[in-house]
Design a protein around this nucleic acid. Structure first.
Lengths: 107, 107
DNA sequence: TTATATTATCGTAATATTGCAATATTAAAT
DNA sequence: ATTTAATATTGCAATATTACGATAATATAA
């Protein structure tokens, strides 16, 4: 065991959970916030800013990338990351729907 | 290693990440949705509904409880869970703030 | 009190995540 | 082509998560 039984859940539930998993680490929250404060971002700044080793930051960036939240473009010699606006708003909507659709009539 | 370096991050970032972690499993999403559809809930129903073993459901409920999202009251011989409304709205707000405060000016 | 039903806890196995050192890759500058 | 700087990948160790069988605790009913 140890692995989630994803197959017994709906696609919607799995997808929301997958996105939540990316947000489930303070480094990734901090990275997203930091990137947004810059206009784009050079990865090496993140290493100084966040305080984790370069390979670790790179891994976290990859997790964020996997759910489509990062666009990367080259600018001079440095890779420049920025947040994918369309996907961002889509996820905002997804969370808001989840929180709004829940019925709060308590027993 | 293996454990998150939570101490290098802000309280806000850690708290949001902690909540996201609870939502980061489809079973817990499904449990929250199912509880909300009922008015309260008997755990054994969840076992049938979700399709995981009773101890596993109990563990998931405990994770949800830890972030203050469940109220439990006794009703007859069965424990009746329901969603804590105040906390729910608080978390909805927290996620919405996170998504709204991000600056989307791309490079 | 004893039986019954429901929920919680314990113990354990399988898998996932986190983090970093070492190394490789990539692209620009010389 | 070589050097330099930035980012990615690999390999591995430590810890966390997920899941469930066995068992304990809890509360009602008989």
């Amino acid at each position: 065991m140890g692995s989630s039984k994803t197959h017994i859940f709906s696609i919607q539930h799995n997808e929301l959970a997958q996105v939540a998993k990316v947000l489930a680490h303070p480094a990734r929250i901090a990275i997203l916030e930091y990137i947004s404060k810059q206009e784009g971002c050079i990865c090496n700044d993140l290493v100084d800013e966040i305080g984790l080793a370069q390979p670790t930051i790179s891994q976290h960036l990859n997790e964020i990338k996997k759910i489509g939240l990062l666009q990367g473009t080259f600018e001079g010699k440095n890779l420049c990351y920025c947040i994918d606006q369309e996907r961002w708003l889509e996820l905002q909507q997804a969370f808001n729907n989840f929180f709004s659709n829940i019925n709060l009539n308590c027993c």
